[in-house]
Design a protein around this nucleic acid. Structure first.
Length: 417
DNA sequence: AGTCCGGATATTTGAAGATA
DNA sequence: TATCTTCAAATATCCGGACT
């Protein structure tokens, strides 16, 4: 099913976060408890001292969200997740924040719903992926700009990459890379059209369909090493073919803009840095946080993104992405992050902190988050568990639904007092 | 000398849903 | 119907240290 305006409109109505008096307006807890949009009713459970509410909350099956979200990134939640909370806990113009924004699902969804998008991530790649989609150019503008790129000014200056690209394709990619680094430097003034082109190009670098610049390789959220790619090529008997870089960028641009323009929204604030210290964000300025941190050391974000970082001109070694191997270290990181969120979130505002079960179902991260919030100025409301028959389409690496990998969204819901 | 164990490292993909 | 796009790592192996 396509994402339609009809799906969006009701979301823009201001909603109350509930009130203890009167009882005419249901509280958020009541809304969650009584949720039954996909047939099932919420199951309540108490494990230890943690109240759980279990249901199918976000989507029935794999429902597509707004097309502007369709940017590949490792470990991103469905846009329906932030939508669920934004719809019920904020009104138009409110600020919605994600300290681990990744591809920017939360700020983009917030913008689509007329809220103020605020986002942060330690990886500079995040701003490059999120910011252009908050103010997209038109296809015509992109096409005109692409005609100005000096496509003949590219060399094969990194022969390793010939494992992924034909020489001609690599020359075009290099030409675009050089052109963007010169015309739209990362520390320079934003240029919505150039920044958009870079965002799309980053997303076309590698994948396993003809819509990408590369020969068939692993899925686009994880770039294999050049050495591993040479092995894949040998095993499959494949050689990189020429790809039309400009045409593919335009095609993906059209796909991203298919569902129409971005909604008008208050100005965005996107930063690059640690979630534990975000001085650019004013105290008490945020109404809702919807976020999901890295899960222990499961995903190697820097390595997975080496090819994208190369294209963008980011020095991967300079990006200090913390990998917490131990549960204790991870919980300390979460606590320090929650302390900063306590500063940023206004009284009465909420935090939806999404984690999952990892280590083959042995570690339930929401328990660590719940413990980390102890003693901070938050009411710990409950943990929502989103359970579906179907959790992901991926079956590479032998991942199967509801057996391997992370198969449930587990959201610790806090309210600032 | 042999075994066990935990941690580190290298290797490896296919089904579901949307769209044309 | 055909094609395109997407996707929160498990498993096998190696290595070094602890222990028998």
């Amino acid at each position: 099913m396509r994402y339609s305006t009809q799906n969006v409109l009701p979301l823009f109505e201001p909603v109350s976060t509930g009130s203890v008096s009167g009882g005419a307006v249901p509280s958020f807890a009541d809304l969650v408890r009584n949720f039954a949009e996909f047939g099932g009713t919420s199951v309540q459970a108490l494990e230890g001292s943690i109240p759980y509410l279990i249901n199918e909350f976000w989507t029935s099956g794999q429902r597509q969200a707004h097309s502007i979200h369709e940017v590949s990134y490792r470990a991103c939640f469905k846009p329906q997740l932030p939508e669920f909370f934004i719809k019920r806990l904020t009104k138009s113009g409110d600020a919605v924040y994600d300290p681990f924004m990744g591809r920017g699902t939360t700020p983009v969804q917030a913008a689509l719903m007329g809220r103020q998008p605020i986002g942060n991530d330690i990886n500079p790649l995040s701003v490059l992926l999120a910011n252009p989609r908050l103010a997209p150019p038109t296809i015509r503008e992109v096409a005109r700009r692409l005609d100005h790129v000096t496509w003949d000014k590219g060399e094969v200056d990194n022969p390793e990459l010939l494992a992924f690209y034909s020489p001609q394709t690599l020359r075009h990619i290099s030409a675009l890379r050089n052109w963007l680094i010169e015309r739209a430097p990362l520390d320079g003034m934003p240029d919505p059209i150039n920044d958009w082109i870079r965002m799309v190009a980053i997303n076309r670098l590698s994948g396993h369909s003809p819509g990408f610049f590369s020969v068939y390789t692993l899925p686009p959220n994880q770039a294999v090493s050049a050495q591993a790619q040479r092995k894949i090529n040998k095993k499959r008997g494949q050689t990189p073919q020429d790809r039309d870089v400009k045409k593919l960028i335009l095609k993906k641009t059209a796909a991203l803009l298919r569902d129409g323009p971005m909604s008008s929204h208050p100005p965005a604030l996107l930063t690059t840095g640690t979630a534990e210290f975000t001085p650019a964000i004013r105290s008490g300025s945020v109404h809702l946080v919807v976020t999901s941190p890295p899960f222990l050391d499961i995903v190697q974000y820097a390595e997975d993104n080496w090819l994208r970082s190369w294209f963008a001109g980011i020095d991967v070694a300079s990006v200090a992405i913390a990998h917490h191997r131990t549960e204790e270290g991870w919980q300390n990181m979460v606590r320090d992050t929650l302390k900063e969120l306590a500063r940023i979130v206004k009284p009465g505002g909420h935090v939806a902190f999404e984690v999952g079960e990892v280590r083959n179902g042995k570690v339930f991260l929401e328990r660590l988050v719940w413990a980390a919030a102890e003693g901070l100025p938050f009411d710990r409301l409950f943990v929502m568990v989103n359970q579906q028959e179907f959790t992901k389409t991926a079956n590479c690496w032998g991942v199967r639904n509801n057996s391997k990998g992370t198969n449930s969204n587990r959201i610790v819901v806090l309210r600032r007092f």
